[in-house]
């Protein structure tokens, strides 16, 4: 595995990498590694094709800060909910329509903690992890603007 950024510890595993990953295999490995869990929640983000208009998504990030920032977000999730583990994988580089961008997995004794922690991780990854997306479309290229709803979503935590 040529992951170019890894962070571990009790807050969970964080991987930032250009390579594609198999989310089913990652989810199975994550679930198998848990002790005492009764619930595993996973979320996988994929590149929308927008009816064939999207040709490619280029994801830029801030090496070093990306891993540190996701690590802080993961530590916060681990402190707020009773989790047996969590995992974040986020890709960067050029991705085509339908490709997997990222995944989050959380595990807990009961599902409420796992669901809440996964939602929290997603909300913070959207607006507080240093990634930027540039889309190349048939209709032109441009940076994806941050959405006000994504910023507002943080206030619920």
């Amino acid at each position: 595995m040529a992951a170019d950024g890894q962070a571990g510890g009790t807050a969970g595993r964080v991987r930032v990498q250009p390579e594609a990953f198999d989310f089913a295999a990652e989810a199975a490995a994550f679930a198998a590694a848990q002790t005492g869990a009764g619930a595993v929640v996973t979320f996988t983000g994929i590149v929308r094709d927008d009816g064939g208009d999207l040709l490619e998504m280029q994801i830029e990030h801030y090496p070093g800060m990306t891993e540190a920032q996701i690590g802080r977000i993961a530590a916060e999730a681990a402190a707020r909910w009773r989790l047996t583990g969590l995992s974040v994988i986020h890709r960067h580089g050029a991705l085509g329509p339908g490709e997997t961008i990222m995944m989050v997995a959380t595990a807990a004794r009961h599902r409420a903690d796992a669901f809440a922690a996964a939602e929290f991780l997603m909300d913070y990854l959207k607006s507080r992890a240093p990634f930027w997306k540039k889309e190349r479309r048939r209709s032109g290229a441009g940076w994806v603007a941050a959405r006000a709803e994504d910023e507002a979503a943080l206030s619920r935590w």
Binding site: R128, P130, K133, A145
Partner: peptide, 8 residues
């Protein structure tokens, strides 16, 4: 310096 982040 960078624009608002768009991860996830």
């Amino acid at each position: 310096f960078f624009p608002p982040m768009t991860g996830g």
